[in-house]
Design a protein around this nucleic acid. Structure first.
Lengths: 343, 343
DNA sequence: AACGTTTTCCAAAGCGATTTGGTAATCGAA
DNA sequence: TTCGATTACCAAATCGCTTTGGAAAACGTT
């Protein structure tokens, strides 16, 4: 059933039917009712492509997920972020189109998306410190919003970020307050902007107390379970091993827990662990009592809010970019305790 | 830059330019070259919506992700499946459009997707035993392919499934061969078809050896880490607790590991665990030695192959539906050992 | 040279919506 | 009664592509 048929069935012109359905005023209330009823009856839905062609908008938003050639890992955070964004899109009538792209091809894909006109805007994932995608998208003139920030990009753009530096500063402070002096940092890849900011927070907290920053205690890798396990096993062999660890995600934190157990120690008593917790739906941090002491910030909520920012930008292209910084919440769980060394 | 402009610049008709770019024969090789060069130079890309309107195809495939109201969890498997499917789509020139939908609304969404014509086909996720979506999609006449199967649906349709029954039968056999008599089953939600089949495999293995099936040893819940922990803690309190566990995914398996440790026991020595492993990129089962004994089947590969099946169906709508059953591979890791009870 | 084929191109008609630029019909006020 | 304004509708243009139905030019054959 298309507009033409529907109009014919109603004995009206396509114009009138279209106007009636789209809420334009130049249609009498009576016919509007009649049209609405018929549309319902024949379950008429305007063809997306035709509508898009006529209006010049596609009512779709693109998410380009870079798959790096070396470590072809899908960010585990991705599912929940998408779920959040998807809720907002659905409510606003937007579709979400996903492209999985080799990161070498990413720029080409952005240009193509614009040229082919199949999205009205783009969400940029996993920004690096001087991420070239931002300048590219500004250059192209395609509305976009970034999940995170790029430290070395200084032109304004839409972003939503968790306050990574502050979260890790507070977490480190918390461990220092418990008497820990040697704290291992298991960071994500520090080419990623978020990881870079986290390290800054960690370092700043140490320096604030006049403590030395030991490169041997700092790691930066992709956040897998094994990474947590391996890194901690190795650091434990140091002459002066850490008494506490700060880790970037629940998944390596689980690996840390395993390493601690394997060494015959107890997490929270012998060794303290704080993790960042993205509040993933399938990896809840304990039922009532949080398992890990953690800085928590819901990635799903981030998805919701960033989607809203982008949609607003699309609707009002002249408006200045919006930014939002979410603060993480520090919840104390069972994985931390006072430094018992030398008691 | 659109077709009209490009044709004007070349002094050719839109027809000729279109044909040249789409590889039709009625264009001389010389002008084809000329057109290709100009298209490249002005980086011309046909507008997706216009092309779709003209051809009647949208070159997009829909994935409807149901979000159930009770437990609004995003399946952790989802990211990797999408990654696999995405590779195939990209290679074949298809876009992927995602809809996150409250499961109560799901049927409406399928109908709308068809009516609005914004996808050429659909991938059905997480089928239940008598999944009504299959009949619905057949009724609508929209090409689709199912990741998994629906036991109670007997009309032919495209599907790709892992041999869940066989995997769990073999895993159970493996534990029985090690001398375990009481084996706990931590299954996924058994309204899901895959979980139902897994239970059948488990039960069949027990019955084959004339062993009783104890309902107290069988659980069926959403596959979170806490689920694994809680269930095993509880089963351990039984007068006659299991000496081994069979679990549906790595994530609850990690919870089981925690429960075993917390009880002061050693996994693989005191208690054996076998898990199914979807081979997720961010949850590898150990580095060189597998951590868990597991039945493994790559969900990413499943995504790739199912996407291929669907695309074929779209291109040849008259062809009979295709099906594919992947066998899981049993890899022995550190989490299993002989039953030491009473030695 | 004549004639049928093949090659190479083009004008125009779609695809299914929105939107522009109207026109009758009705209404109110002078 | 007349005339401008308002109401309620419509025909046709438009978005950017593909595709149909030619038609002119080149070619081959006799």
């Amino acid at each position: 059933m298309n507009l033409k048929d529907l109009a014919a069935r109603l004995g009206l012109s396509q114009t009138t039917v279209s106007r009636a359905l789209n809420g334009y005023p130049e249609v009498s209330e009576a016919t509007r009712q009649r049209v609405a009823a018929a549309a319902e009856k024949y379950s008429y839905r305007p063809n997306t492509r035709a509508k898009g062609l006529a209006t010049g908008r596609s009512m779709a938003i693109g998410h380009v997920i870079p798959i790096s050639a070396q470590h072809e890992m899908v960010n585990p955070v991705f599912g929940d972020f998408i779920a959040g964004a998807g809720e907002t899109y659905a409510a606003a009538g937007y579709d979400m189109v996903l492209s999985l792209v080799q990161d070498s091809q990413e720029k080409r894909v952005y240009r193509e998306m614009f040229a082919k006109g199949n999205v009205d805007g783009i969400v940029v994932h996993a920004p690096e410190m001087q991420d070239p995608r931002i300048a590219l998208l500004q250059d192209i003139g395609l509305p976009f919003a970034v999940h995170g920030r790029a430290s070395d990009v200084h032109t304004p753009y839409n972003w939503l970020d968790m306050n990574n530096k502050n979260a890790f500063l507070r977490a480190t402070d918390f461990l220092l307050d418990l008497g820990h002096k040697r704290i291992g940092l298991l960071n994500g890849l520090e080419t990623m902007d978020f990881a870079h900011r986290r390290r800054i927070g960690y370092v700043e907290a140490l320096l604030n107390r006049g403590l030395a920053v030991d490169p041997q205690l700092m790691r930066s890798e992709e956040m897998t379970e094994n990474y947590g396990y391996r890194a901690v096993r190795q650091m434990m062999k140091l002459p002066n091993p850490p008494t506490a660890y700060l880790v970037s995600s629940m998944i390596p934190a689980i690996g840390i827990r395993r390493a601690i157990h394997d060494a015959g120690l107890v997490m929270g008593r012998d060794i303290s662990v704080i993790t960042h917790d993205d509040d993933l739906s399938y990896l809840r941090n304990g039922d009532d009592v949080p398992l890990f002491t953690a800085t928590r910030s819901s990635v799903r909520e981030a998805g919701q809010q960033l989607a809203r920012i982008l949609i607003e930008q699309i609707l009002n292209p002249q408006e200045a970019p919006k930014t939002k910084l979410l603060e993480a919440e520090l919840t104390v769980g069972l994985s931390t305790g006072p430094n018992m060394e030398g008691r």
